[in-house]
Amino acid sequence: MSLLEKEQELHQMIGEGKMMEAFEKFYADNVVMVEPMSGTTEGKDANRAREQQWLEMVQEVHGGGVTAITSNEEDGLTISESWMEATYKDGNRAKMEEVSVKKWENGQVVHERFYYTMPG
């Protein structure tokens, strides 16, 4: 399976509400994730906790999707542009748009950096 196909499957699972299942399947134990708002988080356990904390803040997802996706198979990179609209438990509703750059090794994500601005 190509990295592009893996990235597409990952987004398909997220779209089906299987975000944590996708995380478990595609992310390496030593993954490093970089967020503009919270900085760098190292390791699968720490990133799992961060993802679960975010999910616990969401009351309802109204929609989402991928607007662009590509891969550089030789260098082990995938890039996707996606969006999600959600209402949070605090009552705020927001449409988030982000770009994600992933580095893959042995079929799993070892580094991911997100680029986005917070809706204001």
Rank of each mutant, 00 (worst) to 15 (best):
91 G>W: 13
47 N>S: 11
81 E>A: 02
88 Y>G: 07
97 E>H: 04
49 A>C: 08
99 V>N: 04
102 K>T: 07
76 G>Y: 08
102 K>A: 13
52 Q>F: 04
46 A>N: 14
102 K>E: 13
103 K>S: 05
55 L>G: 14
98 E>N: 11
64 G>V: 08
68 A>H: 15
103 K>C: 03
69 I>D: 08
47 N>A: 03
37 M>S: 14
100 S>E: 11
53 Q>A: 15
78 T>R: 00
38 S>N: 10
69 I>K: 13
70 T>P: 09
60 E>W: 00
75 D>W: 00
59 Q>K: 12
100 S>L: 13
46 A>L: 11
49 A>V: 11
63 G>F: 06
75 D>G: 09
54 W>F: 15
46 A>M: 11
59 Q>A: 10
98 E>Q: 12
57 M>R: 06
103 K>W: 04
90 D>G: 02
54 W>V: 10
40 T>D: 05
78 T>M: 02
39 G>Q: 02
87 T>Q: 02
59 Q>T: 00
41 T>D: 03
38 S>K: 09
93 R>M: 04
65 G>E: 05
53 Q>E: 13
63 G>H: 06
58 V>G: 07
44 K>L: 10
72 N>Y: 00
45 D>H: 06
56 E>S: 10
51 E>Y: 15
53 Q>H: 10
40 T>S: 05
83 W>I: 04
90 D>M: 03
69 I>V: 11
47 N>E: 03
38 S>I: 04
79 I>S: 08
92 N>M: 12
99 V>G: 06
93 R>Y: 00
102 K>F: 05
45 D>V: 15
66 V>I: 15
61 V>G: 05
68 A>R: 15
42 E>P: 01
84 M>N: 10
63 G>K: 09
71 S>C: 04
85 E>Q: 08
79 I>H: 01
104 W>H: 00
96 M>R: 06
72 N>V: 02
43 G>C: 09
73 E>Y: 01
52 Q>L: 08
58 V>D: 06
82 S>A: 12
94 A>H: 02
63 G>C: 07
40 T>A: 09
66 V>T: 14
76 G>I: 11
103 K>L: 12
81 E>S: 02
95 K>T: 13
89 K>E: 03
54 W>P: 02
54 W>N: 10
47 N>L: 07
86 A>S: 09
80 S>H: 09
90 D>I: 00
97 E>Y: 01
59 Q>G: 11
43 G>R: 01
64 G>Q: 10
39 G>L: 04
86 A>P: 01
77 L>K: 15
37 M>Q: 13
93 R>I: 01
69 I>Q: 15
68 A>V: 10
93 R>E: 05
75 D>K: 12
48 R>H: 15
105 E>C: 03
66 V>R: 11
62 H>K: 07
99 V>I: 12
68 A>N: 15
83 W>A: 09
89 K>H: 06
70 T>R: 12
55 L>Q: 13
100 S>T: 10
89 K>D: 02
41 T>C: 05
54 W>R: 10
